[in-house]
């Protein structure tokens, strides 16, 4: 069997201020997530409460075990974590 990892989806309509929220970034044991400012503006410190100013991504997905801790902790229900076969079904 070739090892595969869960598919992680982030609904950016719901996850709008990930750098302010931090919950999934903090809770994930293998630190799968990363957060970046959508754009870096000269002379400006990005407002972390402004919707869309920061973007969340599941960068290190090959480390995801499907433990679901991030899904449980997400306050806006923006995350899904499912094995590929479940996604297809």
């Amino acid at each position: 069997m070739i090892p595969v990892n869960p598919v992680i989806t982030i609904d950016r309509e719901r996850c709008t201020t990930p750098f302010d929220c931090k919950r999934c970034l903090r809770v994930c044991p293998p630190a799968v997530f990363a957060v970046h400012a959508a754009k870096i503006v000269r002379g400006v410190e990005t407002d972390r409460t402004e919707p869309g100013a920061y973007l969340l991504a599941a960068v290190y997905r090959d480390k995801c075990t499907g433990c679901m801790k991030c899904v449980e902790v997400c306050p806006v229900g923006a995350l899904t974590v499912a094995m590929p076969q479940e996604v297809r079904a």
Binding site: A34, H36, K39, L55, V59, R61
Partner: peptide, 14 residues
């Protein structure tokens, strides 16, 4: 500021 990392080669590899 590293935002390009999301579309980087490494990200595609992972």
């Amino acid at each position: 500021g590293g935002a390009e990392g999301l579309a980087s080669g490494l990200n595609r590899a992972i």
